[in-house]
Design a protein around this nucleic acid. Structure first.
Length: 484
RNA sequence: GGCGAAGUGGCCGAGUGGUUAGGCAGAGGUCUGCAAAACCUUGUACAGCGGUUCGAGUCCGCUCUUCGCCUCCA
């Protein structure tokens, strides 16, 4: 069964076929960098990270482009309010570009800890102003856009398909009852800004054929995705809340400019909620990742996210995180047991699990189902290891390869070589492993001498230090506990 | 008001007509010096009301409830 992707545009699952066989161009809306990332960002980028990983695992060469929005856009509607990055710069008494750079680094730090692979290209809006101007100029020349008073607006009426993604096609009906004010400057209330004149004191601004100003929000994604991925992108991802107006505007301006389909498969991930309510910066209920990482292993967060489908809302709670943590540990323990076990004669065949896992992922990236197959696998391996016959060298290698490929390489929830999920890096981690090995050797000695007081003391004190020891048939395995 | 999504056992969360999802928590057991882990056994849930069908959590209709978007937002 070939890969099926739910396409938001057709509202159905479709068999995935890229424009060019074997190659996938994928664009995902990146963050606006004026604050630290929260759990909502984590859900989005972990989800699309797994999409890219699965496509690569399936043999595609993937070019993943994810922008950084570092031009400030407005806090209010399209014509009012303050530039978000400029506002943050004012609050921090610094320059907008410093704000953007600072939070860009912060974003990647958090994503790295979540095991999110970096995009192949991470273009910034400020670095692509000429491309945006070129696109706007093309739209003006083809009469899809018009200039008023140093501002450039896209004419929605010039593009009959406007709103086809969100289903908001009747623009006149749409207008009644909304809070969008009618600006006399615009020809139609739904027209959106492509270029905005810089008012007095605006810091981030560029020269353009229409005067000094800055680009509108929607135009950067079109300009940058088409620059790096061509006029038709295979996959365009983003949060559901961006379907309208952002993605509908992207479609309008891109297709108006090129006359070609802009995106083959639109993918939208659902929201993170807290107590059933959307998590958002403005709602003051957002869970900052840096704070969350203080008490919860980032791998647990990643696992928690992948235990629900990307198109389902994910409700955050302490209890749910704890359940995920315990579940992930089970998988990691199996990986460790495989590493420690001595070859015996028992056989293990992972082919059926591979088939099931593949089917789950091919069905619109059903990670929760895929994870349930990992648990079935884990139980099966543990049972085999519990028996006298154990596992043969080949079977151990096969089972290890299964976990490293699907839990490691594809889902990214276990690391191949250790159980501490990588926030202790390099040499110091190796040292830690050796030191613990010494202590565990001493514990074995004590147990052999029936000195259980000493062996228990070693175990208890290691636990106090954050190292949990469990005895298996293969000997002691250990893991770091982030929670005391 | 318009557009869209969803309501599954104590909790989380899969399931696109017929046979066990899975995890966590709980109970009993095996194993273990003890503990933890592992393994075995244990839960007959699908918002409500109608309908289609031999058969529905799964299709159709209605009702109730929740959430998202319509303003920046992953």
């Amino acid at each position: 069964m070939a890969l099926q992707i739910y396409n938001s545009l057709s509202r159905s699952k479709e068999t995935f076929e890229p424009v060019h066989p074997g190659v996938v161009g994928m664009y995902v809306c990146g963050p606006t960098v004026y604050g630290h990332a929260h759990l909502g960002h984590a859900k989005s980028y972990v989800s699309f990270d797994v999409v890219a990983r699965w496509l690569r695992q399936s043999g595609y060469r993937v070019r993943y482009v994810q922008n950084i929005t570092d031009v400030g856009h407005l806090t209010d509607d399209a014509d009012q309010g303050e530039d978000k990055i400029a506002r943050q710069a004012r609050l921090e008494k610094t320059d907008p570009m410093e704000v953007a750079q600072y939070y860009t680094r912060s974003f990647y730090e958090d994503m790295d800890r979540l095991g999110v692979e970096r995009p192949n290209i991470a273009p910034t809006a400020t670095g692509h102003v000429p491309e945006q101007i070129a696109l706007i100029r093309q739209l003006v020349e083809s009469s899809h856009a018009y200039v008023v008073n140093g501002n450039v607006y896209f004419s929605v009426q010039s593009f009959p398909d406007y709103g086809k993604l969100s289903g908001r096609t009747d623009q006149d009906a749409l207008q009644s009852g909304t809070r969008v004010e009618v600006r006399s400057e615009k020809r139609h209330p739904s027209d959106f800004a492509l270029w905005k004149k810089a008012e007095e004191g605006h810091i981030m601004k560029w020269e353009s054929p229409w005067g000094t100003g800055y680009p509108g929000w929607h135009v950067e994604c079109s300009a940058m995705s088409m620059k790096y991925l061509g006029e038709t992108v295979d996959i365009h991802g983003g949060g559901m809340e961006n379907k309208f107006p952002h993605h509908d505007c992207e479609i309008a301006q891109s297709e108006a400019a090129t006359g070609r389909p802009y995106v083959r498969y639109w993918m939208h991930n659902n929201m993170v909620t807290v107590g059933g309510i959307k998590m958002g910066k403005s709602l003051k209920n957002s869970v900052n990742l840096k704070d969350l990482f203080l008490e919860t292993d980032p791998m647990v967060i990643r696992f928690f996210i992948l235990q629900s489908h990307y198109r389902s809302p994910l409700d955050f709670s302490e209890a749910a995180i704890r359940a995920s943590s315990a579940g992930l540990e089970k998988l990691q323990d199996t990986r460790q047991r495989l590493q420690k076990t001595q070859p015996e004669t028992g056989k293990f065949d992972s082919a059926a699990f591979t088939e099931r896992f593949t089917a789950a992922m091919d069905d619109d990236f059903n990670t929760p189902l895929a994870i349930s197959i990992l648990f079935d696998f884990s139980k099966s391996v543990n049972s085999a290891l519990d028996k006298q016959e154990g596992l043969s060298t080949d079977s151990i290698a096969e089972a290890t390869a299964f976990l490293d490929t699907f839990a490691g390489k594809v889902l990214g929830v276990i690391s191949a070589c250790n159980e501490t999920s990588g926030h202790i890096s390099g040499n110091s981690h190796q040292t830690l492993e050796r030191v613990i090995a010494i202590l565990l050797d001493m514990r074995i000695e004590a147990r052999n001498n029936k000195d259980f007081a000493l062996s228990d003391r070693i175990r208890d004190r290691l636990l106090e230090a954050g190292v949990e020891v469990k005895d298996t048939r293969e000997g002691a395995i250990w893991s770091l506990k982030t929670e005391p």
